[in-house]
Simulated assay, not measured.
Amino acid sequence: MGPPLAVAGPQGPWQQVLDTLAEHGSVIAHGLLADWIPADPEGPGLRRMLGRDWDRYHAMRHPPVRERFAASRLLLKHVAARVLHAAPHTVELAYHAGGRPFLRGCDQIGISLTHTEQLLMVGVTRRGWIGVDAELADRPMLRSGIERQVCTPYERTVLARVDESRRNEELVRIWTLKEAYSKAIGQGMRFRFNEFGFGPSGRPVRVLRPDGSPGTGDEWSFGTCRVADRYTTSWALYDAGFGDTRDTAAATMLDEGLVAALTADPLDPYAVTAGRAA
């Protein structure tokens, strides 16, 4: 699928995103929080952009949480808008029972969202399901003893063989893969992480049973890479086997009357911008 692409605000680069989507049927984009913070956090433009998420956003009392929530939705809506050939404010997010976001009325498109510290990242696919996750590469996980709760017996054996200087880095990689896979299948943290696992670095990545035997087939693909020199990012992609839905324009997938209602007034005076106000 290729590594995540940097998107430094609403200006893009969007052609690179569209080219990657055309080539692979999936794309992952990441941005920095400062580039996506809305210029007017209480303005009508942001309210219109967030849509149904506005009340949830407005109820948040902790400013950093509010900023990250708004910025991540702006990034997701701008990426999705390019895929759908629609205006960002017309993209409507909804949520499954487990909290996984989806594009209302566009079931052919799979999406995923993650954010940590200053990093925002979204994944979009036309092939099936996608999950993305990111963590600080040096997050101290081993010292917390978390591997005893989230790793399978096989993974603990593999970790014990890794040089101590790299062991925490390897655990962060495994953790992000678990998060990405669980997001892709719509389970999140409800799926116990010690019931599935992954093998060591340097081997083809696939889901493994607790004893290390294969748990999935070729319909799943995974990847991990470092982003912005500070973050370990992973993704999980499930190919549903229906091919690439190349025509993803909202005008094609949605009812004509609904499209007209959503895309009315293209010169919206409340168009939202991102980035801190001067």
Rank of each mutant, 00 (worst) to 15 (best):
L93T: 09
A236Q: 06
Q187F: 08
L159H: 04
D163W: 05
C106F: 12
D229P: 02
G25H: 06
D229L: 01
Y57I: 03
R192I: 00
R126C: 07
R56M: 01
I185D: 06
F193V: 00
W36M: 13
T252A: 15
V132Y: 06
H96E: 14
D19R: 10
G215F: 06
G188C: 10
A250H: 01
T232H: 04
G51M: 11
A29W: 00
L237Q: 13
S221P: 04
N168H: 10
D138E: 13
R48A: 14
G43S: 12
P214Y: 12
R190S: 15
M141G: 12
L93R: 11
Y57E: 00
L159W: 06
T232F: 00
G131Y: 07
E135K: 02
I109N: 05
T245M: 02
A277Y: 04
P101Y: 08
A134C: 10
P3Y: 01
A39L: 02
A137T: 14
G215L: 09
V65P: 00
R203H: 12
H62Y: 13
A278V: 11
A87N: 04
A22D: 10
P38Y: 10
A240D: 12
R139Y: 05
G45L: 12
V259H: 09
G123C: 06
C106T: 07
E135H: 03
L254Y: 02
W235C: 03
C225P: 04
V79I: 14
D229Q: 12
V17N: 00
R56Y: 00
